[in-house]
């Protein structure tokens, strides 16, 4: 049993996995950023439309 140079296909597969990982991490960061902006921008001191009205 020995280690060999990765086949070209394995390199491509690794690139795809890393690429997908980066995309997913960026998506998480995006959602986090959006949440922060939405929470800080919204004025929670005013109540939404009163249901009773």
């Amino acid at each position: 049993m020995s280690f060999h140079e990765p086949h070209e296909l394995h390199k491509r597969r690794l690139g795809r996995n890393v690429g997908l990982g980066v995309v997913l991490a960026a998506f998480v960061a995006l959602i986090f950023g959006l949440t922060i902006v939405k929470v800080t921008e919204t004025d929670f001191s005013k109540a939404p439309v009163q249901v009773s009205e």
């Binding site: 086949h7 296909l9 491509r12 597969r13 690139g15 795809r16 890393v18 690429g19 997908l20």
Partner: peptide, 9 residues
């Protein structure tokens, strides 16, 4: 594997 048309990112 050489004949598999596997896509890259």
């Amino acid at each position: 594997h050489a004949v598999e048309p596997e896509a890259s990112f």
